[in-house]
């Protein structure tokens, strides 16, 4: 897909809006330093309150993902994968420790700041695609830019570019229900990329796809990674994990080292 159209990827970067371009240049500069991590987690803990009981879920996670890395986090269910993803995605708070995302300490963020950081730094890709069912492919992709207060025309132009790049030219005005699983996931990936975030968090992105489509999606991820984006994929599938450059194993709320 992407591999067949390298010129599309290039034109995409050229059409980025001004602030997006600046951000991207900043990331390029960081890449030069390379030691600067995208994700830096130190002795992070989190527990859920179950009645009067505190159930620890994350028991001191140390994790560092450098800018431009492509890693997968593996673990059985109940290992704390989703909690970790929540915390990494600034969708949930943590109790103790430290989480620095792209140089920003995440802990004391207000609700609004958290939403802004999510919008600017992170693109999410989910197992069940999570497109809004009452919006067309194009509108779904453009949504994150709505929350960034980008005018409609620009939103749609950029969303169109990304969908073209995903090979979805002829499906832009289709509703999610009219698309196949693979097409939906491509729309979801386009949506994750639309704000040009430096970090993509994918939660079981191939869980609902057949082998062939899974292959295509992972290929797409590899291409995106080559563009300089940091990718973190959460999965329990060995084959998918094998396609990433580093595998982190999570067990019982802790990183397991081999």
């Amino acid at each position: 897909m992407l591999g067949k159209h390298p010129e599309r990827a290039k034109s995409l970067q050229e059409t980025q809006t001004e602030p997006l371009k600046k951000q991207h240049l900043a990331i390029d500069a960081l890449e030069g330093v390379f030691e600067k991590p995208m994700i830096d987690v130190k002795t992070l803990t989190k527990a859920y309150n179950l009645g009067s009981m505190k159930v620890p879920v994350l028991k001191g996670i140390d994790l560092s993902v450098k800018v431009g890395e492509f890693v997968s986090i593996m673990g059985p269910s109940g290992s704390g994968k989703s909690t970790l993803l929540n915390v990494l995605g600034i969708l949930d708070r943590y109790d103790d420790g430290e989480y620095i995302l792209n140089g920003t300490l995440i802990k004391p963020l207000s609700e609004t700041e958290a939403a802004r950081h999510r919008n600017q730094l992170i693109g999410f890709v989910f197992q069940s695609f999570n497109l809004l069912p009452f919006k067309s492919a194009l509108e779904n992709v453009a949504m994150p830019l709505y929350y960034r207060k980008v005018p409609r025309k620009q939103r749609e132009a950029r969303a169109r570019k990304l969908l073209e790049r995903m090979g979805m030219d002829h499906r832009m005005d289709h509703m999610p229900s009219e698309l196949s699983g693979g097409q939906r996931q491509r729309v979801a990936i386009a949506r994750a990329l639309v704000t040009d975030p430096p970090l993509i968090l994918a939660d079981e992105p191939t869980g609902n796809l057949d082998t062939k489509t899974s292959e295509e999606v992972m290929e797409l991820f590899t291409e995106i990674n080559h563009e300089g984006k940091t990718l973190v994929v959460i999965t329990h599938d060995e084959e998918i994990a094998a396609r990433t450059r580093r595998v982190i194993h999570l067990q019982d709320g802790q990183i397991r080292n081999f």
Partner: peptide
């Protein structure tokens, strides 16, 4: 949930 994940704040 979807809207939040793509950058909407709770207030939005």
């Amino acid at each position: 949930g979807i809207r939040k994940a793509i950058g909407a704040s709770s207030a939005d």
